[in-house]
């Protein structure tokens, strides 16, 4: 595998894990560069938390290798975790202790922690005023913030966060995002798994998408979005064929897909969303004028496509509802 001099904070090779007959990981190959925020995405049951547990020594893989901060990590290498901070699944605290006492108790484990660190972190996650209250009285968001503080106790070089935004209100999510970006800017590596794709899109530099225990796509988020980008144009129904023909040359082999049914009059062109002006100019040159033009793709669309996931949509026919109603909002920007 790699050495620390190559700037890889976390790497796995052929990671496999099985629970009975169920395959949780099926040869996972990850490569997380140092100093980035890496978004680890996947549908439920894809293997994200299993991966996190292996990376923190909670469980052992059936096969494969792990490198943390350039050095092999195995059963006898628990001290590697002194430079790693983690929040795995739900944060774990003693309900009868206060937030401050919980952090102090945790600080007694693993790597030594300076005495002032606890209060610094409580300030960072905006829990200083409630630090003396028992954790049993904390909301989910407060526990999550305390969990992030716990992960930062040893000032780790690598941070592993499993659904860190869970339970946070919008202000908390923004605060978490700013904190994680600041940590990456300071040279730390942040490895985040999340289901909130819109939030991940704003936060991460690199994305790894896992499905059925394997990595299906990995790369800088901008590159992935550009590859999967689309432009949607609305024209008069009788001009769809003409518009498709006009756009064919600039699409350069990419799909130009006319819509049907509720999507009649819409054309979708799979090209870089930044070329919206060029598309508009091309249509105007052909005497066709679009009434609407929408650009971009969300990480959500790419995610659904790569993982083969389906949105959780009720079967309208089974309920006898009108299946020709207006399409659901897609989050596209006009």
């Amino acid at each position: 595998m790699t050495s620390s001099s190559s700037g890889v904070a976390l790497a796995t090779q052929g990671l496999a894990k099985r629970y009975g007959s169920r395959v949780a990981l099926d040869g996972l190959d990850l490569r997380v560069p140092e100093g980035v925020v890496y978004g680890f995405l996947g549908p439920n049951g894809a293997g994200k938390t299993t991966t996190m547990r292996i990376l923190t020594g909670l469980i052992r893989p059936d096969a494969g290798q792990v490198e943390l901060l350039g050095r092999p990590f195995g059963r006898r290498d628990r001290r590697r975790l002194f430079d790693v901070g983690a929040l795995i699944e739900s944060p774990a605290f003693y309900p009868f202790l206060s937030g401050r006492e919980n952090l102090r108790a945790l600080a007694a484990t693993g790597a030594p922690v300076p005495a002032t660190r606890v209060d610094e972190l409580l300030e960072l996650v905006n829990l200083r005023e409630r630090a003396g209250d028992k954790v049993s009285g904390y909301s989910l968001g407060m526990k999550q913030r305390l969990g992030i503080a716990a992960a930062l106790l040893s000032d780790p070089r690598l941070l592993l966060l499993d659904e860190p935004a869970n339970g946070l209100d919008p202000a908390g999510i923004v605060g978490m995002r700013d904190t994680l970006r600041a940590l990456a800017a300071a040279g730390k590596t942040v490895f985040v798994s999340s289901h909130i794709l819109s939030e991940v899109q704003q936060l991460v530099d690199v994305v790894g998408i896992i499905a059925r225990g394997r990595l299906v796509r990995e790369g800088p988020v901008e590159d992935l979005l550009r590859e999967a980008g689309s432009i949607r144009i609305r024209v008069a129904p009788d001009e769809v064929a003409g518009a498709a023909a006009a756009l064919g040359p600039i699409a350069a082999g990419a799909a130009v897909t006319p819509g049907s049914g509720p999507e009649a009059g819409w054309l979708t062109v799979r090209i870089d969303p930044a070329r919206g002006a060029e598309v508009n100019r091309t249509l105007a040159g052909a005497g066709i004028y679009a009434s609407r033009l929408e650009t971009g793709t969300t990480l959500e669309g790419l995610f659904l496509e790569l993982t083969g996931s389906h949105p959780d949509v009720t079967d309208a026919a089974a309920l006898g509802t009108d299946a020709t109603a207006a399409p659901q909002a897609t989050g596209w920007r006009s």
């Binding site: 909670l58 628990r78 605290f93 309900p95 484990t109």
Partner: peptide, 14 residues
């Protein structure tokens, strides 16, 4: 039950 062992192990504690 509370998962506090998990937190300690994840910090590299024996």
């Amino acid at each position: 039950g509370w998962g506090t062992l998990k937190a300690a192990v994840a910090r590299g504690e024996s």
